[in-house]
Amino acid sequence: MTDTHDELLDDVALYALGTLAAADAQRVRDHLQTCDTCRAEYEALVPVVAALGTSQEASADASSGSVVASPLIKARIMREVRKKKHVSSNGHRRHLVWPAYAVAAACFALATASVLYNIALNDRLHQAEIRLAHQSVVNERDDSMLSDLANVKAQRVSVPGGEVVRSNGHLYLAMHDMPAAPDGKVYQAWTLPKGAKKMVPSATFVPDNRGVALVPVSNDAVNTVAVAVSIEPPGGSKQPTSAPVFVAHLE
């Protein structure tokens, strides 16, 4: 920093541009409190500096050659915002959020325990009635899936927004925090069998409004070495048409 006023005006320009180190910036700030001329110069230059950013505004059109932001950014932001809003609307209390599949598995376990308890306490319940009631809650396929997901011996591979679960020979995607798919698109799972060079198409899916999805991916977990997810048109694709959202390599 220097003494003459002209040189101080130079420093004001540097301060507006944001190229001063902390100590120099503080001295300019102090000076701006007392000098109308420098403050007017600063106020004239700040919008100019801000407009510099506009020169980098990316085009909405990828064909123009500029880099276009991924639509997943918006999906992630809005999911986070709506989640925060939901927490806030519940009296600003931060709740422990369990993944929905864990809640579902816990409910299943609780329901099963409750049923067994009732059998022991009340032999007037007919076995067929119990089975019927049980079937009204979860069908056999869901039983098997929830039991696989709740299996403590399952292999779990973390992926962004969830995990890949290998359990009892089955492979699942258990997503608990996945952004919504872009408008008009769905997610599609892919598997890579041992020795294969190409991914094999698996299920398409969309997460629910909490970002939750439970997706059976393969019944041949033993011979699957990787699972991937990409964004595809509704109905899915025979080969991936977009870069993978993630790839999970299984041991």
Partner: peptide, 24 residues
């Protein structure tokens, strides 16, 4: 006032500016 749709509108209008500066 916690209107998420307003944030979405701001994002649509200004995300290219933010992303462009960050990329540069």
């Amino acid at each position: 006032a916690r209107d998420a749709n307003a944030l979405e509108t701001l994002y649509d209008a200004h995300h290219r500016l933010v992303y462009g500066v960050a990329m540069r």
